[in-house]
């Protein structure tokens, strides 16, 4: 797994130009958050098809988001909380 990864990172495509890579890097968060326009998404998709380095960056950004959304434990709400909120509201005029 590790060696495959290193190979992937070092293999920057010749068709890749740095200006486009910068644009893609700027779009990374918006892409994983679904906050890009259709044109931006299209440009992004086309670029990562050719550029392995940006492809990997995208993968890592998805992984990072997934670590929070998929692994962070939710805290159980104490049962008394809803009751005490209701009680306080009923007292309020």
């Amino acid at each position: 797994m590790e060696s495959k990864f290193k190979e992937a990172v070092s293999g920057k495509s010749e068709r890749c130009n740095d200006t486009d890579c910068e644009k893609v890097a700027d779009l990374l968060n918006a892409v994983v958050d679904g906050e890009v326009t259709a044109e931006e998404q299209e440009f992004f998709n086309a670029h990562i098809e050719d550029c392995i380095s940006c492809f990997e960056s995208h993968d890592k950004q998805k992984l990072l988001k997934g670590l929070v959304s998929g692994h962070l434990k939710r805290i159980i709400v104490p049962e008394s909380l809803a009751l005490s909120i209701k009680a306080k509201i009923q007292e309020t005029v």
Binding site: I75, I85, I89
Partner: peptide, 15 residues
């Protein structure tokens, strides 16, 4: 603290 903060929030929301 979370408990207090949530109660305070609901009381404000009620007002």
């Amino acid at each position: 603290d979370a408990n207090d903060l949530v109660q305070e929030t609901y009381l404000k929301a009620y007002r």
